[in-house]
Measured scan of single mutants.
Amino acid sequence: NKFNKEMRNAYWEILHLPNLNEEQKNAFIQSLYDDPSQSANLLAEAKKLNDAQA
């Protein structure tokens, strides 16, 4: 299933973003579980936030 793979990839990438705190990571990961079809968008948002907090 495409979403499972996308979701897993997004999950791991978000988990390893160095500039997000636990609360931010948890919020993105919760959103992933709530709507796996948004994995790519959530990952993009997480990366933007990560870069902004660098």
Rank of each mutant, 00 (worst) to 15 (best):
N1W: 00
K2S: 14
K2Q: 14
F3I: 11
F3T: 04
N4L: 06
N4M: 03
N4V: 06
K5R: 03
K5W: 06
E6G: 00
E6W: 01
E6S: 02
M7Y: 13
M7Q: 15
M7G: 01
R8L: 14
R8H: 10
R8V: 10
R8D: 02
N9L: 11
A10Y: 02
W12Q: 11
E13A: 15
E13D: 06
I14P: 00
I14V: 04
I14K: 00
I14W: 00
I14E: 00
L15G: 03
L17S: 04
L17F: 09
L17V: 01
P18W: 11
L20F: 03
L20V: 08
L20K: 00
L20T: 00
L20H: 00
N21G: 13
N21K: 09
N21M: 11
N21R: 04
N21Y: 14
N21F: 13
E22L: 14
E22D: 05
E22F: 14
E23N: 12
E23I: 11
E23G: 08
Q24S: 06
K25I: 04
K25Q: 07
K25M: 12
N26L: 14
N26Y: 12
N26M: 14
A27L: 13
A27Q: 02
A27W: 14
A27P: 04
F28R: 01
F28I: 06
F28L: 13
F28W: 06
I29T: 02
I29G: 15
S31Y: 07
S31D: 14
L32E: 00
L32Y: 01
Y33F: 15
Y33L: 07
D34R: 08
D34N: 06
D35H: 09
D35V: 05
P36K: 05
P36W: 06
S37A: 09
Q38K: 14
Q38Y: 09
S39V: 01
S39Q: 02
A40K: 13
A40I: 14
N41H: 14
L42M: 08
L42N: 06
L42E: 03
L42P: 02
L42K: 12
L43F: 03
A44P: 02
A44Q: 13
A44Y: 07
E45H: 06
E45I: 10
E45K: 14
E45R: 13
E45A: 14
E45S: 12
E45M: 15
A46S: 09
A46N: 00
A46I: 03
K48P: 00
L49V: 12
N50F: 01
N50G: 02
D51M: 09
D51Y: 12
A52F: 09
Q53P: 06
Q53E: 11
Q53Y: 11
Q53G: 14
A54Y: 07
A54Q: 14
